[in-house]
Simulated assay, not measured.
Amino acid sequence: MIEFPDNRFNGEVAPRFFDLVDRELIRVIDLVVVTKDADGTAAVLEIEELDDEVAEALARLTGDEDGLLSEADLMELAAELPANSTAMMVLFENTWVAAFATSVRESGGRVVMSERIPAPVVQEARALLLDAAASA
């Protein structure tokens, strides 16, 4: 879920996202936009319900298995959005890992833990390490 405060969602993220799709690093399974107005009322928008410019930018990103994000899932995620914001919710497969995952399985291995570390945490840790190195 990618949040755009003040409902400033305009589709400018599409070219970078196309790059990931074109390089076959990801496969888009489902993509939906949720908007929340100033009074907190949320609405789920399909690509064809967006402004023409945004719909055109994102139309290529819709997956073959549209609809895997249910209305209930989307409204639960929308509850997390602040008023007067828009979110692009994308369900995608990291295809870049497929060959590695196959190799792991074929060698008898299995994933026992997987966790994403938020970028701000990584940036803070990197800054601390660089400061420590500079002080040494």
Rank of each mutant, 00 (worst) to 15 (best):
M1W: 09
I2H: 15
P5K: 07
D6A: 13
N7T: 07
N7S: 14
N10Y: 03
G11P: 03
E12Q: 13
V13N: 05
A14W: 08
P15D: 00
P15Y: 04
P15E: 03
F18K: 15
D19I: 00
D19H: 12
V21G: 00
R23E: 12
R23M: 02
E24S: 13
L25W: 08
I26S: 03
I26K: 03
V28M: 12
I29R: 13
I29A: 01
D30Y: 05
L31D: 00
V32F: 01
V32A: 06
V32C: 04
V32P: 00
V33A: 10
V34F: 01
K36V: 00
K36N: 02
D37A: 10
D39S: 14
G40P: 02
G40N: 05
G40T: 04
T41E: 11
A42H: 05
A42F: 08
A43W: 06
V44N: 06
V44E: 09
L45N: 13
E48H: 12
E48D: 11
D52Q: 15
D52E: 15
V54G: 01
V54H: 02
V54A: 11
L58P: 07
L58W: 01
A59F: 03
L61Q: 07
T62V: 14
G63M: 05
D64K: 12
E65G: 05
E65I: 03
D66H: 12
D66L: 10
G67M: 07
L69S: 05
L69W: 10
S70L: 10
E71H: 12
D73H: 14
D73Y: 07
E76D: 14
L77D: 04
A79L: 03
A79S: 14
E80T: 12
E80C: 08
E80D: 10
N84T: 08
A87C: 03
M88T: 11
M89W: 08
V90I: 15
V90Y: 06
T95D: 04
W96C: 01
W96G: 15
A98H: 12
A98Y: 04
A99G: 13
T102G: 08
S103V: 06
V104P: 07
R105F: 12
R105A: 11
E106F: 06
G108R: 07
G108C: 05
G109A: 01
M113N: 14
M113A: 15
S114E: 14
E115D: 07
E115N: 13
I117S: 01
V121E: 15
V122A: 08
V122H: 10
V122F: 13
E124I: 07
A127K: 14
A127Y: 03
L130Y: 11
L130H: 11
L130S: 11
D131I: 01
A133G: 09
A134D: 13
A134K: 13
